[in-house]
């Protein structure tokens, strides 16, 4: 083997389909499970969050308008890209968490399968959560689920990849755009996942990924008036009350989950009811 010096990756943020450094210039050290330095990912600031919200908001109309069929196809495309780069994720997960290869492979497989599972939900949500309502009068009346806008996601510390995908996929499959804060201990798979997203057909800004400290950024997610919903599954229970209090300012929809479920999609959707007279 040669003595070649390998090229190390600079882990940056993923905002609006681009990979900027944090505006703050701050980074933090991420070590392997064995305590060896691995990388200096960005320590995102509240201003990075602000920029990401702008990106997510501007991506929202386009993504929301994409047909359910198209959204499902793009989800499947992300899964394809992830499958193609699975070994990279396995390596990163092992490096940062020290789990066995078998376990790391299982997490990546589940992540891919979860994307495919959510891909199939895109065009079934109105059948699941919609209704035509037999009102007592000459009106056609129906209720459909609709995306709510921009949703924040505080991903759990572990599993770093599956936890992130589990939180992001249900949020965006309905047409929302999101800003996700990755696991702070193991943020690298999240940024590598951003590379997957960048090479899939997902429009820039639909998913934005920040790395940093939940304790610093989560309150800014909660208080941001242009974030409509917030998944706090990754926030420890005892800290959630504070976020809910801050989120009350714009009556953010705040939820947390422990398993994949269509309820996780519907938690970040609104029900819209439309009335129209029936006459000639």
């Amino acid at each position: 083997m040669s003595n070649r010096i390998d090229i190390k990756k600079t882990y940056k943020l993923y905002i609006g389909g681009a990979f900027p450094r944090t505006e703050s210039g701050r980074t933090y050290e991420v070590k392997s499970s064995k305590g060896v330095f691995v990388a200096n990912p960005c320590l995102a600031s509240r201003k990075d969050l602000k920029d990401a919200v702008v990106a997510a908001r501007s991506a929202y109309p386009g993504w929301n308008k994409a047909t359910a069929y198209n959204k499902g196809q793009i989800f499947y495309r992300i899964a394809e890209m992830l499958e193609g780069r699975r070994s990279q994720f396995v390596d990163e997960i092992i490096l940062l968490t020290g789990v066995t290869k078998l376990k790391a492979e299982k997490e990546v497989s589940e992540s891919i399968d979860r994307l495919v599972w959510y891909a199939g939900w895109s065009d079934k949500l109105s059948a699941l959560a919609g209704s035509t309502n037999p009102v007592a009068g000459p009106y056609y009346n129906f209720t459909i689920p609709e995306s709510m806008g921009v949703v924040g996601v505080i991903a759990p510390e572990a599993p770093s990849l599956l936890g992130l995908i589990d939180a992001i996929a249900p949020v965006i499959v309905s047409g929302n755009t999101c800003i996700a804060l990755a696991s702070s201990k193991a943020p690298l798979p999240a940024i590598t996942f951003a590379e997957v997203l960048a090479t899939s057909d997902l429009p820039g800004g639909v998913i934005n990924i920040l790395t940093g400290k939940s304790s610093e950024l989560a309150p800014w997610f909660a208080s941001h008036m242009d974030i409509d919903g917030l998944d706090i599954s990754g926030v420890p229970t005892k800290l959630r009350g504070e976020l809910r209090t801050a989120g009350a300012e714009n009556l953010k929809r705040i939820s947390s989950f422990s398993a994949a479920s269509p309820d996780r999609i519907l938690a970040f959707m609104e029900a819209k009811t439309v009335w129209h007279p029936i006459g000639n």
Binding site: N133, P134, N141, T143, A271, T273, W275, H276
Partner: peptide
Amino acid sequence: ANTFNKFDPTSP
């Protein structure tokens, strides 16, 4: 649409 302030128990 083409009506207003209609309510019904079946309608969310």
